[in-house]
Simulated assay, not measured.
Amino acid sequence: MMYVAACMLMAGVCMGTDWTFDAESELIPRAQWAEQLSLALLPAYSLAPDPTPDLSQCVQLLEEFANNSATLSNCLVSMARPVRLCQHCYKEYAQLKATMSKIGNPIIQNSTVTCSTILLRSDRVQVIVELNDFFDKLWSDSKCDNCLEKNGTGVSHNTSEFMNSFDSLIQCFNNTMKEPPISSEGNISRVCQICNETYQRLNTMYNGLEKKTGLCIDLEDAMNSTRKLWSKTFNCTLPCTDTVPVIAVSAFILFLPIVFYLSSFLHSEQKKRKLILPKRFKSAASVANIQDKRN
């Protein structure tokens, strides 16, 4: 009987009958009323053993995911140039992942009922799933975990130390450019001379992090921009202190083939002489013997 009554109520909605919702006879939209009625009928006639998730909690999680997505998107775009998204957007990313975890967690204790069926897998496009995968891929491609603590709750000490050195070098660039340039040594400017030690220290630190823990997009972008400024903008081609030994070794290596062929040539000539001398001696001895016989 309850099923028949439900069907009659649904038929009345479809036929345009105005059904009231509460005691004050306030009408609600037919589509919304029909949706609520159909969802209310699911627990009684569904074959699933678990009850239907509380829609209010699922809607609340949906709004929370929307707010987290908007906040994270705004942070990522704001930190896109210069790239600092790993250092400044890790909190927003953690909040988004926490919301996704809530969607997959049971609503009722000791139950398997979750909002994931309604919010994640209920349509063909799967908007929430696609957005979550997009943020995960962007975070993974940026290698942000290399610049954060293991639990992802803060920036690592190595990253902070590198960025402090980077800021010091940029400050050195800015302060030195205010002074008049000098060109006593070719194209070497004042920036190259004064900031050389800071630049070399930053470059050494970068190479060490690359071998030790890996790099994130923040550090890679910072170092690439620094090297571009150093080589192209300031044209810093400082002479290498090991130039003389390098030239000496190179000249020695280039001279080795000449020594080899020359020694081979002299050695071959010496062998020829050793082979010819006995023949001369033999011919001279034979001539002497002939002369003695004639005599």
Rank of each mutant, 00 (worst) to 15 (best):
Gly12Gln: 10
Ile194His: 10
Arg201Trp: 03
Val113Met: 05
Asp221Thr: 15
Met79Gly: 02
Pro245Thr: 09
Met223Glu: 11
Ile276Met: 00
Lys212Tyr: 02
Asn110Ile: 01
Glu63Met: 14
Pro51Glu: 13
Ser122Asp: 14
Phe281His: 02
Gly12Ile: 05
Arg273Gln: 14
Val246Trp: 00
Ile107Asn: 10
Pro53His: 13
Ala48Lys: 14
Thr241Arg: 05
Cys240Trp: 01
Gly152Cys: 02
Gly214Lys: 13
Met8Cys: 02
Ala5Ser: 12
Leu219Cys: 08
Ala248Pro: 01
Ile253Arg: 06
Cys144Arg: 07
Val4Gln: 14
Ile28Phe: 07
Asn68Val: 04
Glu220Tyr: 06
Ala251Cys: 07
Lys212Phe: 03
Gln193Thr: 07
Lys279Leu: 07
Ala66Arg: 13
Glu63Tyr: 12
Met10Val: 15
Asn235Asp: 06
Glu197His: 05
Glu197Pro: 00
Ser168Glu: 15
Lys293Thr: 08
Glu197Asn: 06
Ile103Ala: 05
Leu61Met: 09
Thr52Tyr: 08
Thr241Cys: 01
Gly104Glu: 07
Leu55Gly: 04
Asn68Ile: 02
Met205Val: 02
Leu131Pro: 03
Gln60His: 08
Arg81Phe: 09
Thr52Ala: 01
Asp145His: 14
Phe260Met: 11
Pro257Asp: 10
Asn224Thr: 12
Asp221Asn: 14
Lys232Leu: 11
Ser250Gly: 07
Arg190Thr: 11
Met8Asp: 06
Cys240Asn: 12
Gly208Gln: 15
